[in-house]
Design a protein around this nucleic acid. Sequence first.
DNA 1: TCAAAGGTACGATTGATTTCGTACCTGAGT
DNA 2: ACTCAGGTACGAAATCAATCGTACCTTTGA
Lengths: 105, 105
Amino acid sequence: MVGRNLVGPEVDALELGVVLRALADEHRRSVMMELAADRTDGERGCNSFDLPISKQTQTHHFRVLREAGLINEIDYGNRKGIRLRRTDVESRFPGLLALLAAELT
Amino acid sequence: MVGRNLVGPEVDALELGVVLRALADEHRRSVMMELAADRTDGERGCNSFDLPISKQTQTHHFRVLREAGLINEIDYGNRKGIRLRRTDVESRFPGLLALLAAELT
DNA sequence: TCAAAGGTACGATTGATTTCGTACCTGAGT
DNA sequence: ACTCAGGTACGAAATCAATCGTACCTTTGA
């Protein structure tokens, strides 16, 4: 099945406050640290992050990341793909992803 | 009168989570944006930020920034000095202050 | 067609954070 | 000594955010 890309803000609409609030949460930050550190930027399943929380809560967190403009969510119906918006984030907030990647112990 | 420097974490103890939670708040972020953009790094009175909140709440916010390791607070008894910990923050989170300074419209 | 796995919607709960009222402290200046 | 401006301590109220239970949807594969 072909996936539908769920909507997020355009590059110019990214706001630092929204982004920082998104990154303030430990679980969302761990997702972003993994994505930032993986330079292949491949699409990942949203179960590949081993988050120790229920799937309803994961839905919530990935939506927050998407609405902040940090990731794309691709809806396949019964599964979901996650992809970092690296060029957008890097162009709007240069250095931010490096900061996150560097925190990956 | 000579001021006493209120305690904050050492450079090595700075944590990204704590820092991002501190920066997630709009008022604290506006303080940090001003400090980051002012390269003189002079000591500032904590009334120089024109925060639209009560002084009790300001006390709270500056403490959060200090405990995150972002600023020093110098206690003069009946007034308080604020100073950005630029070298510490820059060494632990390179690029973060530039990100904040760039947001100052 | 039907079951199973993965995901979402909605609402409730719980917990954290922001905010401020009241009371009190400190130093400067009269 | 007294007042005043600036700050803090403590606690309560209000707001916001994370979490999950229940119910429901979508696709895959038997």
